[in-house]
């Protein structure tokens, strides 16, 4: 019962956040105007006044950005839940097995190469942007493939090795990224920070539609694995005793997490902490049952990232603060507060 109400509350929260976030910015659009413009698209007229410019800003600039924020937040949150389920540890993070650092290494590499090698110089901005997305995504898949391969012995995936291989590859990718930024010039460096600190600045409808399948597939498939993920918490072997094909489960989870995190990093750079904090908060409210945890984390992740983006684009307007900084700065105190609260609960239990 509590779970159902939490889900409903989170849906309401998401709608409110979406309407507010779409209205906030250099041109203010009141919530009722946002609703009126959106309903007008669906053919319903509301007696609320707005001008064409307002509608254009909302539909062409704000809305893709808000929706992209929701998609990225959802993707990061559910892949966080999936990774934590896989490692049977609430502290696991999608970045843990090197997905995001591999992706950002590739992005930074491309940025520096494009501007230093005339052969690769593509004049128009748009193809260059998509090329970058594609290569970043390939980087994410490649690193997670290497890490996954390293941890397979005789057809079995050893989770401890997976974790260690991920840590090692993470360190390597970070170091190489640092090396490249060390030799990069100012302009390259600014472009590179986009990928290492994250931004939703690249939002367009095309990006939104490109990102959509990569988020939608994990969102639709992961809840089907909820039972398996729960059983997995008992232990790998116990899950097998309950009839679960553990080998397939592990492969599937790594693939789904890589899909969504890889796609998120490719369009928005590295945004830390979301995959860790969102599931953590939801676990505190409705427990660890993945049936509700996945859905609720997806909803809450969407709201949280959209809000973080509002902060990132308004706090030092007209400039933008990288959203990764916002999630880290706002996320850490919340996280520590939660830890302290849980510590108190544990003490009262004991």
């Amino acid at each position: 019962m509590k779970r159902k109400w939490t889900t409903i509350a989170l849906i309401v929260l998401l709608i409110v956040v979406m309407i507010l976030a779409a209205g906030i910015g250099a041109m203010r659009i009141a919530p009722q105007q946002v609703v009126a413009i959106l309903l007008h698209q669906a053919g319903i007229q509301l007696p609320v006044g707005y001008d064409e410019g307002m509608a254009n800003v909302l539909l062409q600039i704000r809305l893709p950005r808000v929706i992209m924020g929701m998609l990225v937040g959802t993707g990061l949150a559910i892949s966080g839940v999936a990774m934590q389920g896989l490692f049977r540890n609430p502290l696991a993070d999608p970045g843990l097995i090197g997905i995001s650092s591999g992706a950002s290494l590739c992005a930074v590499l491309v940025i520096v190469l494009i501007s230093s090698l005339p052969v690769l110089h593509i004049d128009s901005l748009l193809p260059r942007y998509y090329l970058l997305n594609l290569i970043t995504f390939i980087g994410a898949c490649a690193t997670s493939l290497i890490v996954f391969r390293l941890s397979r012995i005789g057809g079995k995936t050893l989770l401890a090795t997976l974790l260690l291989a991920g840590l090692a590859l993470n360190a390597l990718c970070r170091a190489m990224t640092d090396l490249i930024t060390f030799v990069a010039n100012d302009e390259q460096l600014r472009n590179a920070t986009f990928w290492t600190m994250g931004s939703l600045g690249g939002a367009t409808w095309t990006v939104v539609f490109t990102l959509l399948p990569f988020i939608a597939i994990p969102v639709l498939l992961l809840p089907r694995l909820a039972k398996s993920l729960n059983a997995f918490a008992l232990g790998e072997q116990e899950a097998a005793y309950l009839g679960i094909n553990v080998k397939k489960l592990k492969t599937l989870i790594v693939i789904l997490a890589t899909l969504s995190v890889g796609a998120c990093v490719a369009v928005a750079g590295i945004i830390g902490f979301v995959g860790l904090i969102v599931p953590h908060i939801i676990r505190g409210i409705t427990g660890n049952d993945h049936r509700s945890l996945l859905v609720n984390s997806a909803l809450f992740g969407a709201s949280l990232l959209t809000l973080a983006d509002v902060v990132s684009r308004t706090i030092i307007a007209p400039a933008e603060l990288p959203i990764g900084i916002v999630t880290a700065v706002l996320g850490t105190p919340v996280f520590i507060m939660l830890l302290l609260k849980q510590k108190k609960q544990l003490r009262s239990l004991a």
Binding site: P90, N230, Q237, L242
Partner: peptide
């Protein structure tokens, strides 16, 4: 089994329900 190392916290009813999975 002899030992269970539960990484994530579940309630007892949730654990017993896993037997019905």
């Amino acid at each position: 089994s002899q030992q269970y190392a539960m990484g994530l916290a579940f309630s007892c009813a949730e654990i017993v329900m896993m037997g019905r999975y």
